[in-house]
Design a protein around this nucleic acid. Structure first.
Ligand SMILES: [Mn+2]
Ligand SMILES: [Mn+2]
Ligand SMILES: [Zn+2]
Ligand SMILES: [Zn+2]
Lengths: 149, 149
DNA sequence: AATGTAAATGTAATTATGTTGCATTTATAA
DNA sequence: TTATAAATGCAACATAATTACATTTACATT
């Protein structure tokens, strides 16, 4: 039931010493219910009753706490996805592939795809990597195959 | 001398059937003179006499023609860099590492670093990849090492 | 249960980024 | 030289994001 479901997010907010407000619970609920990232514009239109500034502040504090991470899609639009790795306050470890479907515009975090180790040119000291790919997601490539026009 | 230098860019514009205008030559000259990408805000402030809209249009047409490519840095800011691969009209092949220095904010295109082949989960059909890394560039890591406070 | 307070939200204003439509200018082909 | 398509400039608009400050609310403490 809905109550049990929300309890999980209340615990999460508690853990990070954040007050349990309706807006925060709704943002968490929405982001955790999908297997793709959520764009800022989508969040804004879905939660149009919540003030835009509040939304930005919620997203920022969630990112700081390591609850979500930001990823820009091919158009430079900010998208947000829940962190699965052991992310925490100012410690993000979201080194996975971000797949951007050119058809449905969804951004998928492909966590299980471990980052290939590579040796940078002399002098460069990397502390984080992100891999981007674009193309067709499973749903869209299937649709595409059936509609051979 | 300056005349010889500019001749190279005039040829480039010719090749792509673009008119040789002062604004375009200046943009080319600036981007080719650096070994890092140039941010849109930087371009705008350096070329403040050129209209903002004109600048956007120049960048867009250069990108379409395969002269430059766009890359978003860690803050989602648009940066532009010259294409070295065999890019052309609507054919980009800039599948290299983009290194974003967290200190000087410069974006480096590390062309020689070829993309590692990786197998995506069932159903995903990728047609382009980009690898991002962030950390310290050679200059900044050197500076950092000497100033142990 | 009442209350004090820091945290969170709302509101208004401002800045940055990017686009569109239209008038004017200019590069260049003829 | 001239005609014209291409390029630029300008005004208006749209969206994204931030800042400052006033108000409300969650929640710890009494
Ligand atoms: Mn991700
Ligand atoms: Mn590049
Ligand atoms: Zn798709
Ligand atoms: Zn640097």
């Amino acid at each position: 039931m809905a109550q049990t479901k929300n309890f999980r997010f209340e615990e999460l907010l508690d853990k990070h010493h954040l007050k349990k407000t309706g807006a925060r619970l709704r943002v968490l609920s929405m982001m955790y219910s999908k297997n793709t990232a959520t764009s800022q514009p989508d969040l804004e239109s879905v939660m149009s009753d919540i003030d835009r500034v509040t939304l930005y502040r919620i997203l920022n504090v969630f990112e700081e706490k390591g609850i979500i991470h930001k990823v820009f899609d091919l158009n430079g639009t900010a998208n947000y996805a829940v962190c699965h790795a052991d992310c925490g306050e100012n410690h993000h470890h979201d080194e996975h592939l971000h797949f951007n479907c050119t058809n449905c515009k969804n951004v998928y975090c492909l966590d299980d795809l471990h980052m290939p180790r590579l040796n940078l040119p002399e002098g460069f000291k990397a502390d984080s990597f992100t891999l981007y790919a674009s193309g067709l997601c499973p749903k869209c490539s299937k649709k595409n195959a059936s509609s051979i026009n």
